[in-house]
């Protein structure tokens, strides 16, 4: 049987390290901190959109991207579902229901369960309408193609894009601007971040995408995650510097 390769062992070591730091942070921070970490600006934008939606009585559009099951571009990107849970948890009783558009079959099905769960938790299952949560296309272009005409309709208050996005989804940002709809784009793809950065929308940069928190909602989970990321960064920096020095001195082959 072939032996396990060195990169596989290093990868397993990294995962182990992340788990250890996660557990340590969780054990040392079980109470809510009086001094919270600053929220990610783009996610604060979602809170503003949610307020606006409930004040104006207009619908919020939520685009979930096309990544989850790996049939398109990306695998396992469940961050959009978390954002959906947060948004839905607070917009169930809005005059107009939040409309959700997915670009992946499994994502659309899970999203359906999440939305139904949000209505059920609010004891308002009768308000649940499946047509407000649909697959809008089966690949990246088709997902955007299904979203754009919906965006062009009147009566919406803003657009949140959260999930696996691609640079061509900039068209949605452009149409939102034409419709004078504020847009928040949350994505982990550096290519999409670069494209959306050039637009006027609020966009998550780098790893910020993986820290969803809206106002005080999900704040504890965010605080833990932010602290874990800080420690991971420090440990990684130290390891990198030591490894570089060892390599330079010829100790590491």
């Amino acid at each position: 049987m072939p032996p396990i390769s060195l990169p596989d062992l290093i990868a397993a070591g990294i995962v182990g390290l992340v788990v250890i730091i996660m557990v340590l942070v969780w054990l040392t921070n079980r109470k809510t901190s009086a001094e919270p970490y600053e929220n990610v600006t783009a996610y604060d934008g979602i809170e503003a959109l949610m307020h606006r939606s409930s004040e104006e009585g207009k619908a919020l559009l939520l685009g979930m991207g096309d990544g989850f099951s790996g049939q398109n571009t990306s695998l396992g990107d469940s961050n959009g579902i978390l954002v959906e849970r947060i948004v839905l948890g607070r917009s169930v009783f809005n005059d107009q229901p939040t409309r959700i558009f997915s670009g992946d079959g499994a994502l659309a099905c899970i999203s359906q369960l999440v939305v139904h769960g949000a209505y059920k938790n609010a004891m308002a299952s009768e308000l649940f309408q499946p047509e407000n949560n649909q697959l809008s296309g089966v690949n990246s272009f088709a997902w955007m193609a299904g979203l754009l005409p919906e965006l062009a309709r009147d009566g919406d208050t803003g657009l949140i894009l959260s999930g696996t996005l691609r640079p061509e989804h900039m068209l949605a940002a452009d149409l939102a601007e034409r419709q004078q709809l504020p847009l928040v784009a949350a994505t982990g793809s550096p290519n999409a971040q670069a494209a959306f950065f050039a637009s006027g929308s609020l966009v998550t940069l780098g790893e910020d995408y993986y820290l969803p928190t809206v106002g005080k909602h999900n704040r504890n989970a965010y605080q833990h995650q932010a602290k874990t990321m800080n420690w991971l960064r420090i440990v990684l920096a130290v390891v990198l510097i030591i490894a570089a020095l060892l390599k330079l001195s010829g100790v590491l082959s």
């Binding site: 990169p7 290093i10 990868a11 397993a12 990294i14 099951s69 570089a244």
Partner: peptide
């Protein structure tokens, strides 16, 4: 897919990127 993501980012992204910096 979550397990595949963990392996993908650790084995496919983190390890090659870190090794290339050290190399």
């Amino acid at each position: 897919v979550t397990a595949a993501l963990i392996v993908g980012v650790s084995r496919g992204t983190l390890v090659p990127q870190l090794l290339s910096i050290v190399d």
